[in-house]
Design a binder for these strands. Structure first.
Lengths: 238, 238
DNA sequence: CCAGAACCTGACCGATCGGTCAAAATTTTT
DNA sequence: AAAAATTTTGACCGATCGGTCAGGTTCTGG
């Protein structure tokens, strides 16, 4: 009920234990392929229906495997969900690396926003799974939020405070800047149906997201007292 | 399965039909009181667990009434949910009235942000129910999004376009400005556990929300090329 | 005071849920 | 080819779900 996300591990077979291959990458070729297929299906179903609304039966049908097979690989619905969530969280924190003291504030912010907006386009289902978890109390990732994420935010907030003290950007509480950044970028994934309805689109295309990125970029940068770096509307050359 | 939200009505008793009292306010004193109690409990349970995760049993226990009683008043779980959601949606669109052409842009924006932030503090559960509905595809309020909301946004976007053409604020796509406004304000309700974890709080106090309001206000207004109206940090005198 | 409307509720129903299991099929190792 | 490990699968289980219903109690207008 309170197992930290970081320590989670897939089901370990007798063979793996005997071989001493540790438990992380784990398993034969078939296992790796099927686990990946199941996780992909689970991401879609959990995103659409939430944790409780998603049924193992529905995930199984989407995978094209019998339900018992899912339990063979992941044991329980809870384990499957936590495994999926752990993968998503890893991706989530990595984007923070843009904030380093040496970098130009406008550049760092722009790169971060572009990364998160790109993520909203390429992995909207993952974003929804994450959003759903937080909205409903984040009971399955308590530790992650108050430990790993909090420390990371503390670090990066210090970087931004440094930029502010050096007069390189307007004063703003860095933590709240992060809240607004997360909200503004993820809304294009989590609330996509609302965005689509207002824009009169059936789905969000790459062009839509590019335009949205420009808008978010312009508003946030100006709000931080910055001007967009070099090539105004171009994509991240990285 | 596709009944529009606006036409929804509570269960109508034989008496009401005979009396011809129409179906909107409907019912005796007991009915009104119990329906309100049930809706309040439903809001909490739906917010915590989502639509599928919320059980009529759980709502009944929270209300202090037997489960069959809930079905007596609302018929089905779906009707109860849609009734609750309709109340929430009404509240949601009302805040738009701040955007009228005669008003000062900075004033209107500030008032709107303060309203939505206040809503995040006073009705976080309602916000979560709404968020949950959108994240999972808004299948139960399709009509609302593409009809009522879309028209409303279209109207208010025109107002903002007018301000921009008149040089009263920086150019920005008004619809995306709304997306960012909604996201930035509602994140303090929907993602409150994340905000709490990062800030190291157990719960968000009024002071926290006041501080957050100032941050959002400063960033957005500056981002729109505006300066805060008159009394800088004070609450809305309205 | 009485009749009818409104309200209350325990018991029950079929469906679906997550999860188990034994046995068969398949792959890998020796 | 034999043996061992891994993978597949249908059938099954108890629990819980939303919803129903008959019959009781309480309220209310005449």
């Amino acid at each position: 009920m309170s197992a930290p996300v970081e320590k989670m591990t897939r089901s370990v077979t007798a063979t793996q234990r005997r071989r001493g291959t540790a438990s992380r990458p784990a398993g034969g070729r078939t296992r790796r392929i099927n686990e990946a297929r199941i996780l992909a299906a689970a991401e879609a179903v959990f995103a659409e229906a939430g944790y409780t609304g998603a049924s193992m039966q529905a995930i199984a049908e989407r995978t094209g495997l019998p339900k018992a097979n899912l339990h063979y690989y992941f044991g329980t619905k809870e384990t499957l969900y936590r495994t999926l969530l752990a993968d998503i969280l890893d991706m989530w924190v990595d984007a923070f690396e843009h904030f380093v003291p040496e970098r130009d504030p406008a550049e760092a912010l722009a790169a971060y926003i572009r990364d998160k907006m790109r993520w909203s386009r390429t992995r909207p289902l993952a974003s929804k799974v994450f959003a759903n978890e937080i909205v409903h109390g984040a009971r399955r990732i308590e530790g992650y939020l108050s430990d790993k994420l909090r420390r990371r935010v503390e670090d990066k907030a210090a970087v931004i405070e440094g930029w502010i003290r050096a007069g390189r950007m307007a004063p703003i509480d860095p933590k709240h800047l992060f809240f607004i950044l997360w909200a503004a970028t993820q809304t294009y994934a989590d609330f996509d149906v609302q965005v689509c309805a207002v824009l009169g689109r059936a789905t969000l295309t790459e062009v839509d997201i590019d335009h949205a990125t420009e808008q978010v970029l312009a508003l946030i940068l100006r709000g931080c007292g910055l001007t967009p770096p070099s090539g105004a509307g171009r994509a991240d050359p990285e």
